[in-house]
């Protein structure tokens, strides 16, 4: 058992394997008392088997050979799922996307699998150099409270393991689509809504799911929303940055 400080929450994790504790080691709270935990998570073999089946279904859906993962790795996914089920009660959701902080403000890129959100985020990092920080390249947490949104780094940061422990104000969410040329425009919450719903983890628990829907409404009202049709090249990052850093809505 260990306690980790993630998204300004103390999360107690009990696991069957060591992988999740290695993954979260940068976030560990040394000598923390069990009583300080905001969220307590423990995982069973059944939870691990659930992740294995979910992964296989996803591979089959995408027409890929079913990948084989260790119980330890699958447990890391089960732990994040268990945390995500509780997060809405702390005004927080798990968002599938890549989040870069530029000059201290977060820009969150979301797209269907394979479109290239990580590639686009990498172009931002290369373009901005020391002015940019990768908050999380895969599954940042987004806290929405008091009419403001914050992007939070977590250890669950994708295959390239790109993240930091940063918590930054979230300025904008940008939905990416692949195209032959680069073009960016503002979109309304109504236009963004289906994509936001798809990118945010929707809990199985009814009350948590209801809170999640309320948080998505609040999120879409307090950040700038954009749609970027883009190539895979670095010019897309220039166009996106120039538009998104401008006047707020």
């Amino acid at each position: 058992m260990d306690i980790y400080r993630i998204a300004d929450l103390n999360i107690l994790i009990r696991s069957l394997h060591g992988d999740v504790h290695s993954l979260c080691s940068d976030y560990r709270l040394a000598d923390a008392a069990e009583s300080c935990a905001d969220i307590r998570v423990s995982v069973s073999q059944e939870d691990i088997d659930f992740e294995r089946a979910a992964s296989a279904r996803e591979d089959e859906r995408e027409g890929l050979p079913v990948r084989v993962f260790s119980d330890g790795y699958l447990e890391t996914l089960a732990v994040y799922r268990a945390i995500a089920e509780r997060l809405p009660f702390f005004d927080t959701v798990l968002f599938h996307g890549s989040c870069v902080a530029a000059d201290g403000e977060g820009y969150l890129f979301a797209a269907r699998s394979g479109v290239g959100k990580s590639t686009h985020a990498r172009h931002w990092m290369e373009m901005l150099g020391g002015r940019a920080v990768m908050v999380n390249d895969d599954k940042p947490l987004i806290r929405v409270r008091g009419g403001r949104a914050y992007a939070c780094g977590t250890p669950w940061d994708g295959k390239h393991r790109l993240s930091s422990r940063a918590v930054v104000p979230l300025r904008a969410i940008c939905l990416l689509e692949r195209a032959e040329t680069n073009d960016i425009r503002r979109i309304t919450p109504k236009e963004a809504y289906p994509a936001l719903l798809q990118q945010v983890y929707r809990p199985a628990g009814e009350e948590a799911a209801r809170r999640t829907l309320d948080l998505i409404d609040e999120l879409s009202a307090c950040v700038d929303l954009w749609k970027l049709r883009c190539t895979a090249g670095p010019a897309a990052a220039v166009i996106a940055y120039e538009a998104m850093k401008g006047d707020r809505k």
Binding site: P189, K190, Y193, L197, Y201, R202, P203, A204, G205, E206, A209, R210, L213, D217
Partner: peptide, 20 residues
């Protein structure tokens, strides 16, 4: 079913399934 939530976004009514 309780796995499906009716949600009013302010501009429209949507039916959203939970992860269950």
């Amino acid at each position: 079913k309780k796995e499906f939530l009716v949600h009013d976004t302010g501009t429209e009514t949507v039916l959203v399934p939970t992860a269950a």
